[in-house]
Write a protein that binds this DNA or RNA. Structure first.
Lengths: 219, 219
DNA sequence: GACGTGGCGACTGTCGACAGTGCTCCCCCG
DNA sequence: CGGGGGAGCACTGTCGACAGTCGCCACGTC
């Protein structure tokens, strides 16, 4: 159980690089849910001191990828099916606000255009990880287009948990993130139809919740 | 500019105590928005090492009470009026979900009862700080009663920012947190009237946003 | 054989020190 | 008198080490 060493090429801090390395290590499945993340071991693997990985771990804890167990020991987090449902309901509320604000915005036309372009980049043919990234990027963009910075922040706080949920139920075969699922959202925004937009988002989230909750059931 | 030393009576970690001390120091106004928070100075004031305050500061950063400036230097955060409005709109979305879930819950009756009891504890006569605490406690309880742990989490993430907003526009004289403002929410829940409940929450948040944004305008 | 007990290893909490970096301010030179 | 350079300072980034604590395992005893 280890993670490759850090390259010293860029100019970011070691903490940031450690954070990124750990995040990708967890999200890539190198560490499984429940695995214990020892500071000394990680420090050795990453080639940095304990204090540095410590800060990175604390950040991951805030992101929800890691949770504290007995005596401050950290382990990779996982989500129960119930939590997955809860998570997506919160997401629906947040993104519902997002579409409402996008539609109410004076920049609605250009926002819709940007989103239309983004939805075109959603491909059904890329590999799973890329699809997930594209999907999350689209929804993040949707929040951003609302111009509500607090909304963006709240959404990003949920992003870590979503990645956990998606990782747990790694059922990529279902076209949950297909372009077809997102086009109606953009269309509703283009029409300025708040009702339809919110409803479509709700349905999208509900379906995703069912899917991922079921996929993570056997845990 | 200093903060009193930590008492060594309880059994929590120094980091937790430092975190709490810093939080109350900022929220009490001992440090003003924009003030620089130096690690060495705080470490000296609190009587702990730099690494310890460092972790506490990172936590506060995640909470939104402090923000990173040039070269990683941290300073007390503040909110623009626009951000205050954004913040309360997100809160409205979250608490709207909360009331919807409370009403849809099979435990609606007992939840309403608990909330009714909590709203009775909201007094117009206590001192400002106590009023704020009681208000936030009520809204947190509302989220908790929904049984949605992710919602509670998201709400708590916003709590720090809200305290900043309230601190900025320290206009306690207005009965923004009066009992009258909260009773309609509980009543709508008791009646099971989703429409009314959501609308009341929206109005409550909107009024609060106007109030606090205006109060923090001159900044 | 079961149970209490003492040593041992592993892990986190906390600390003090060193290193690098940008800023400021003063001094010297034109 | 104005501008450039360099020393000094005030930070944060990073590290290695010590201390306290919990769980485990082997050993001895009843």
């Amino acid at each position: 159980m280890s993670v490759e060493s850090l390259s010293a090429l860029d100019r970011s801090t070691l903490r940031e690089r450690s954070l990124e390395a750990l995040r990708t290590a967890i999200l890539s499945g190198r560490y499984r849910p429940g695995d214990h993340l020892g500071e000394v071991e990680l420090a050795g693997s990453l080639g940095v001191s304990r204090g540095t990985v410590r800060e990175a771990l604390r950040h991951l804890q805030q992101e929800g990828l890691v949770t504290a167990g007995n005596r401050g020991m950290l382990r990779v987090n996982s989500l129960t099916p119930a939590e997955v449902h809860e998570l997506f309901r919160v997401r629906a509320a947040l993104e519902g606000l997002a579409v409402r604000e996008v539609i109410a915005s004076p920049r609605r036309a250009s926002a819709a255009e940007t989103l239309r372009a983004a939805v075109e980049r959603l491909s059904d043919e890329d590999e799973p990880a890329a699809r997930m990234e594209a999907d999350l990027a689209f929804h993040l963009l949707l929040c951003r287009m609302s111009g509500n910075s607090m909304l963006v922040e709240a959404w990003q706080r949920l992003e870590g948990r979503m990645r956990v949920a998606i990782l747990n139920g790694a059922a990529w075969q279902v076209p949950m993130m297909a372009r077809d699922r997102h086009v109606p959202i953009v269309e509703a925004i283009e029409r300025g139809d708040v009702e339809a937009a919110v409803r479509v988002v709700d349905e999208h989230m509900s379906a995703a919740a069912d899917h991922f909750a079921e996929a993570s059931e056997p845990a």
